Computed example of a mutant assay.
Amino acid sequence: MQAFAFRSSRITAAFALGLSVALSVPAIARDATAQDMKFSFPLACSLGEDCWITRYMDRGEGLDVADYTCRKNTENSHKGTDIAVANMERMRSGVPVLAASNGTVLRFRDGMADISAKKQGADALKGRECGNALILDHGNGWQTQYCHLKRGSLKVKEGDIVTAGDTVAQIGLSGETEYPHLHFMVRKEGLDIDPFDGGAFERGCSTDTKGLWANPIPYQKSILLPVQFGAGAPTSDTVWESGAPTLSISSEALILTARAFHVRRADLWHFEIRDPHGRLFLEKKKLINKDRQFHFQYFGRKKPKGGFTPGIWTGTVRIAPNSGEPITQITKIEVKP
């Protein structure tokens, strides 16, 4: 059984600079004081079912790290909201990125490959951390920015007028990222704004302002992505690929993998694998020893003598957070003769 601490990708001000947008930040501005804008969700997905918020804006001042609830589901200097899909297969199938409000295309970039930043290195991505990207101008000083778009998926060009909900691109893996997600940013007169409560980047997590979402979006405290079976142990390079559709009785191993965001010290992970007769085949509990933004864990067994029993196998992963309600994911796989 192996654990892995994810190397997070920091979203920096270079995103805006890389798209050649000149921004001026008011020296004394604190929040989006003019609550004259509402934004729709920028992805065509069902939050909590096939997409998840994996990182919020950093609201902590200086070196402090805090999201808008004053929890730590972010990282230092993170200026936007990250929304992920389950795996590369889902990304390849095409997940529409949507205009969050009516506006005009101000800038865009395309042509960068959908390759993990681990394989390219920071130097190769310097000044292009946002990857394939798009900036929309909504008038009255409001802008939105969309990063890590799939190469060749942009459907608009500079000067195009868009309506809220229009498909403008697809989610991708371009730029400084190691997993498929959209990095979504909001600005008011050059100031980075958190759409969850209208507060400003690194200006404190306690505000009396209102959120900017047209429909309220619930806070996601802990995230357990869909669990999956495979015939081999995942690595940091393969953990974002989809699981095996089926296995055979002669497969080399039966491995159950879980991936989670916002992992906290003292969370308890419980793995359980049952054979086609419902009998307990394997069980394992793992106590997390430190906070992690992302963590994956796998558990399984090599092929027994005579092979695996044919039929439908069931894998269950349950995370009991050190605070909050338990979360569970269940998956099934057919083992063929």
Rank of each mutant, 00 (worst) to 15 (best):
L106P: 06
H270P: 01
C51Y: 07
L43W: 08
G121I: 05
H183K: 05
I327H: 13
N289F: 05
P180K: 04
P42N: 03
T54D: 12
V25N: 00
Q220C: 12
S323F: 04
P226G: 02
D267K: 12
I11T: 09
V168E: 11
Y219W: 14
V227K: 06
E49T: 04
I171Y: 06
P304L: 05
H138K: 14
G18A: 04
A113C: 07
V186H: 03
E272S: 03
T69I: 09
D166H: 05
L280Y: 08
V95K: 07
R30Y: 00
G278N: 13
A233R: 05
C130L: 02
E189T: 01
A34H: 09
P216T: 01
H262Y: 08
A27V: 06
T12M: 04
K302W: 08
R59E: 02
P218T: 04
L256M: 05
F6L: 06
S93V: 06
A253L: 11
R301E: 10
I171E: 09
H138L: 15
T314R: 15
S93L: 03
S20P: 02
I53N: 09
G111Y: 06
V65R: 07
K188D: 00
A122F: 07
E334W: 12
S222H: 15
R265A: 14
S101C: 14
F271L: 02
A233F: 14
F271W: 04
L268Q: 04
G165C: 12
G62W: 11
L182S: 01
I273G: 11
A84F: 12
G230A: 13
A133R: 02
G324R: 11
R279I: 03
G172Q: 03
C130R: 03
T74M: 11
G204K: 00
G165H: 10
P321V: 10
T69H: 05
D291I: 12
K150Q: 14
E272Q: 15
L247S: 12
Q143T: 06
G306K: 13
I171T: 07
C130E: 07
W269C: 01
G80M: 06
E49K: 08
P234K: 13
R187V: 02
T167C: 13
E176G: 07
W142N: 05
T314I: 02
E283M: 12
R151Q: 06
T328H: 07
S116E: 07
H181I: 06
A34S: 03
M57P: 01
Q220R: 07
P337H: 09
L182Q: 00
A66L: 08
S9K: 06
A258T: 15
P226S: 08
Y56P: 01
G159F: 10
A27S: 06
H262F: 14
R259G: 05
I193D: 00
N87C: 14
I193W: 02
Q297M: 10
P26V: 00
W313F: 01
I288L: 02
S40V: 00
K210Q: 05
P276K: 03
D82H: 05
I28N: 07
C147Y: 13
K38M: 01
K72R: 15
A258N: 13
Y298L: 00
A13V: 11
M57N: 00
P218Y: 03
S323T: 15
S9L: 07
K332D: 04
R10V: 04
I11N: 11
F39E: 04
G103V: 12
R109V: 10
S251K: 02
Q220L: 13
G175Q: 12
T74R: 04
L280H: 10
I28V: 09
V21M: 05
S323P: 01
S24F: 08
R265L: 09
R92F: 09
K38H: 09
